Amino acid sequence: MPPINLGIVGVGKIVRDQHLPSIAKSAEFNLVATASRHGTVDGVPAYKSIEEMLDAVPSVDAVSLCMPPQYRFEAAHTALSAGKHVFLEKPPGATLSEVADLQATAAAKGVSLFASWHSRYAPAVEPAKAFLASTQIKSVQVIWKEDVRHWHPNQAWIWQAGGLGVFDPGINALSIVTHILPRSAFITAATLEFPENCDAPIAAELHFKDAANMPIHAVFDWRQTGKQTWDIVAETEAGTMVLAEGGAKLSINGELVFSEPEQEYPALYCRFAEIIKSGTSDVDIAPLRHVADAFLLGKRKVVEAFFD
């Protein structure tokens, strides 16, 4: 097959940091257009809206949607309705209902929809999944703490309703947990900390259990400075498993058993090409469902105001 002609909508930090380098290395995709209110890519035709882009460049086969989740549904619906394959940055939507509607539209139009969860493609995630499948799990601890001022400087949308707040990184942890555990789990209690001037939480503590009553405890916090923490720790019959650095390193009983350089976004684009060629979709809403459940069940705690 010839390369897939790709358009990107929403040219911001994640596009420059991850999407553009991955596309440049891919033989599967050819970036032919962008649509963004402010950002452009050198040498690539730029438009202000997805409608303008699709009208001007009908050869676009697929689009990657990288705007904030609150604004993604209309663009996705426009692209799918035009018969284009769609790559959704995480989270796939602002609500579960939006994603369900997009799935139905993709199926009706016979195009592929990809809800990307980049952290699932971290190098040590599959080895961790294989280890957990080989033993009995006693408990799981998730510690996801980082500095929002470093990772999201001057990004007001993350503090608005629908922006997810600390669940923007926390959903990465949930995407890994829902992938590596052998049984599904559900939230039993949660506490969400909201800055008094924000509509999205800056921290969260979640308690889960599965059908066998195996406990899972997760702590997400956006106020950590210095060394950042992205760890999943499982106590098992075979000892302690630590999936560290966002899924980059795997240790068993204190011994490093797997570590490779991060290649998450190149793997995402390989997967996107794969489902396009096979005429299928890949839309797992389990991580987003957990976030929705946390907002449904969680106690709200107001904390001091946040200023960037």
Rank of each mutant, 00 (worst) to 15 (best):
Q103T: 05
S81R: 05
G83Y: 03
S81L: 11
Q103L: 02
K48Q: 12
A82Q: 15
T78C: 01
S59K: 04
Q103F: 08
P91L: 09
A62E: 03
L80S: 02
P58R: 08
P91G: 10
V57P: 02
E52I: 00
E74K: 05
A79H: 01
R72Q: 05
E89S: 02
V60F: 06
S64Y: 02
V63Y: 05
L65C: 12
A75M: 12
D101R: 11
V60T: 11
Y71W: 07
A100S: 15
P92D: 11
S49G: 10
V60R: 06
A82W: 13
K48N: 13
A62P: 04
I50H: 11
L102C: 15
L65Y: 02
Y71P: 01
V57N: 01
Q70R: 13
L88I: 00
M67C: 14
P58N: 04
E52M: 13
E89P: 09
R72T: 06
M67D: 09
R72Y: 04
P69G: 10
D101T: 15
D55G: 09
D101K: 15
S49W: 08
V63S: 00
Q70L: 09
Q103Y: 06
A75L: 09
E74M: 10
A75Y: 09
A94K: 13
A100C: 15
A46N: 07
E98I: 12
G83V: 02
A56N: 04
H85L: 12
K90N: 05
E74P: 03
P91Y: 10
V63D: 09
L102W: 09
L80K: 06
A100R: 15
L96P: 12
L54D: 12
L54T: 12
L96C: 13
V57K: 09
S49V: 03
S81C: 05
D55S: 13
P68E: 06
L96T: 14
E74D: 07
E98A: 14
S64T: 02
P68F: 06
L80F: 04
T78L: 05
P91A: 08
K84M: 01
Y71T: 12
G93W: 10
P68A: 03
E89H: 11
Q103R: 13
S59T: 11
A82T: 07
T95K: 07
E74L: 04
Y71K: 10
K84V: 07
V60Q: 04
T78G: 00
V57S: 07
E51P: 05
H77V: 01
L65W: 05
P91I: 06
G93Q: 12
L54G: 05
V60E: 10
K84F: 11
L65K: 04
S64H: 08
S81I: 01
Q103M: 06
V63I: 10
P68H: 00
V99D: 05
S49E: 02
Y47V: 10
Q103G: 06
A94I: 14
S97K: 15
L65G: 09
A79W: 00
A94M: 15
V57Q: 12
A46P: 01
P69N: 08
S59Y: 03
V60M: 08
E52K: 11
C66R: 05
A79Y: 02
K90T: 02
